[in-house]
């Protein structure tokens, strides 16, 4: 140790803070340390995406194909039986992956587009724009979003477009708050001030200085918001004011087959039928939550061991 100071040179100064690893190595190291819950989550998400993409190939029957026997029991012909007007449950489950999940993804993406860009703009601008948007968001968030959604749906009617727009706008308030908060942490950094001193334009500062640094929390938030949106849409559909028939959707499927549950004491399988779509919703949300939990733990460097 003591032989160093004599031959001091800047190049040789040790950067002991982190070992240099390539991106691939880092991903590998991260994955190898991933807990089983995260692995479980990633596999489930992959399966859902697979189902959504190849729904027509996987489903034995059509999405709205009606057979003569309503409430048919589980059999080799109809693996999970048929619903109240004689549609194959399994096929509708598979199509539901496509409909329910893609509507939720589209809504979340729209919410991020609105909330993210406004939040970023507010954080940089910090003047009347920030004041205006922040107060507006305060008011919008003063009403529980499910209640607000119900009010708006009663006015505009329940179509898929309305549903996506309404939920996206309501949910963008939370994205706005988060984006604004994390951007504010970055905006006060000296490197942003340095860019402003250099004379860089607003667009450059947003794209090059701030965005790359707020991505990790936003990605995690995307997962969480997806869960929230997904559950909200499922709840609305379950209440009968969300996605409308004949579109196959898990929330409405629960509602349509709910009465079967009381038959569980006579035929357990029939009783389970309404729980299948509900379980499909639950499983995906659990999976996303597991992955986000791990991701947050990893990127925040949070170690709360005592």
């Amino acid at each position: 140790m003591s032989n160093k100071p004599n031959t001091y040179s800047a190049v040789a100064e040790v950067a002991y803070k982190r070992v240099r690893r390539s991106r691939l190595q880092r991903v590998k190291l991260g994955l190898s340390k991933a807990p089983p819950t995260a692995w479980f989550g990633m596999i489930v998400i992959f399966l859902y995406i697979f189902c959504a993409l190849f729904a027509p190939l996987l489903a034995p029957y059509g999405e709205a194909e009606i057979f003569p026997e309503p409430f048919a029991p589980w059999s080799s012909e109809f693996i999970f039986g048929t619903d109240q007007i004689g549609r194959d449950i399994l096929s509708r489950m598979i199509y539901g992956a496509r409909n329910t999940v893609s509507i939720a993804v589209a809504t979340t993406a729209l919410a991020f587009l609105i909330g993210g860009s406004l939040g970023l703009a507010a954080a940089i601008n910090m003047s009347w724009l920030d004041q205006f948007l922040s107060r507006l968001v305060d008011v919008l968030m003063a009403i529980p979003s499910l209640i607000f959604a119900l009010v708006l749906l009663s006015i505009f009617g329940s179509t898929v477009t309305n549903l996506i727009l309404i939920i996206a706008v309501l949910d963008s308030t939370r994205v706005f708050r988060l984006t604004r908060a994390v951007s504010l942490n970055v905006v006060v950094m000296d490197y942003v001030e340095a860019a402003r001193l250099r004379g860089e334009g607003l667009g450059w500062i947003m794209r090059r200085e701030i965005l790359p640094n707020i991505l990790p929390p936003l990605i995690a938030e995307f997962g969480l918001r997806f869960c929230f949106v997904f559950l909200t849409i499922a709840a609305l559909s379950f209440l009968g004011v969300g996605i409308q028939p004949p579109t196959a959707d898990w929330g409405s499927m629960v509602r349509e087959n709910a009465s079967l549950i009381m038959f569980a004491q006579y035929d357990l399988k029939a009783g389970l039928t309404p729980l299948l779509p509900a379980a499909a919703i639950a499983l995906l949300t659990v999976a996303v939550n597991f992955v986000v939990d791990w991701f947050l733990h990893k990127t925040s460097g949070l170690r709360d061991e005592q």
Partner: peptide, 17 residues
């Protein structure tokens, strides 16, 4: 992660049906 109606129907399944 569970929708409220999933929890509700699980409870119904076990404690009512």
């Amino acid at each position: 992660s569970f929708p409220e109606f999933f929890v509700a129907y699980l409870l119904i399944l076990f404690f009512a049906s």
